[in-house]
């Protein structure tokens, strides 16, 4: 409890202390700009160089192991040689599923965007209900706890039977995979809203809708974003697997197709892209979350 108070005192004290000193430091302040950039470059180097070294060592190791004749997997040099065309021309489109990697990835991303958006809306709504109402929790929570353990792909046959089409089925699988962590985290966030905030809302007499928008969502935002981050990660895991089964354009089926035509190098390239995009999706939600919750997190 004393932490925020100490922090805010420091925040108030700092400008006051630096005010008289400002005149003195004005002139020399301009000179260290170059120094500042140098420091930033150093910081960046410290973060970038170690993983680059590790990566180079791993590639070297892989090259040495797989270069021998009769090895089952291609070494990185051969992967590069065989997939140069795919790397440098991701936009070609020869009809059917013979398209550049850009089109496969964008098809997968669209499915994820659609399914995940539905999951976010439904997850926050259901999570709010479960977090707010004891009866909703008693009724729904056991159901959720069971349903969330069902592996994503186990839903696929059922959704194919229901929708009779690959596209909505894939979206449904994304939805059903990512909705549980969003529900559960939102519910925890809502349950943890301090009684003080509820009292403030009661004294001001906010109606339920205003209470939802002005108190619940901002107060639970850090929890909601934790759920969204887990959810988007699971979506990306599920889409690749689901696409292998439903076929059509998409990175999952691209991998499956490459396996069927024994293009191992293409599989490796696709895995590389899948990893990078999964990482970017996670970072994206994290950054949005950081921006949205800056007020709440500051306390």
């Amino acid at each position: 409890m004393s932490m925020p108070a100490m922090k805010s005192e420091a925040a108030v004290a700092a400008p006051a202390a630096s005010a008289p000193a400002e005149i003195v430091t004005m002139t020399p302040k301009r000179a260290p700009v170059a120094e500042k950039y140098l420091k930033m470059a150093k910081d960046a180097a410290v973060r970038v160089i170690p993983p680059l070294i590790v990566l180079a060592l791993l590639l070297l190791f892989w090259e040495l192991v797989c270069r021998r004749a009769g090895s089952a997997l291609p070494p990185p040099s051969r992967v590069f040689k065989e997939t140069k065309e795919l790397i440098f021309d991701p936009f070609f489109d020869r009809g059917g599923i013979d398209k550049g990697l850009f089109w496969h990835l964008s098809a997968s991303l669209q499915r994820v965007a659609f399914g995940f958006s539905l999951a976010a809306v439904a997850g926050v709504a259901l999570g709010t209900l479960v977090g707010q109402s004891v009866w909703a929790m008693r009724g729904l929570d056991p159901l959720f706890q069971v349903l969330r353990t069902i592996p994503p792909l186990a839903w696929l046959p059922l959704s194919l039977a229901a929708f009779r089409d690959g596209q909505p089925s894939a979206i449904f699988v994304i939805f059903i995979t990512s909705v549980w962590p969003i529900i559960i985290n939102t519910a925890v966030g809502i349950r943890n809203i301090p009684q003080d905030y509820r009292n403030v809302a009661a004294v001001v007499q906010l109606n339920p809708l205003e209470f939802f928008g002005k108190i619940m969502v901002p107060a639970a935002a850090p929890y909601i974003f934790t759920g969204l981050r887990i959810g988007i990660g699971l979506s990306w895991l599920a889409i690749v697997a689901a696409e292998m089964l439903i076929g059509g354009v998409g990175i999952g089926f691209f991998i499956w197709d490459a396996w069927n035509s024994s293009h191992i190098s293409e599989i490796i390239l696709a895995l590389f892209y899948v990893g990078i995009i999964g990482f970017l999706l996670d970072r994206m939600i994290a950054i949005v979350g950081k921006f949205v919750t800056r007020g709440t997190a500051a306390n």
């Binding site: 409890m1 003080d196 009292n199 403030v200 004294v203 001001v204 007499q205 919750t293 007020g295």
Partner: peptide, 16 residues
């Protein structure tokens, strides 16, 4: 209700 406004012990301002 707002006719009996409360000043809480720990301020209870909404941080966002």
């Amino acid at each position: 209700g707002p006719d009996r406004a409360v000043v809480f012990q720990n301020h209870s301002l909404l941080p966002w």
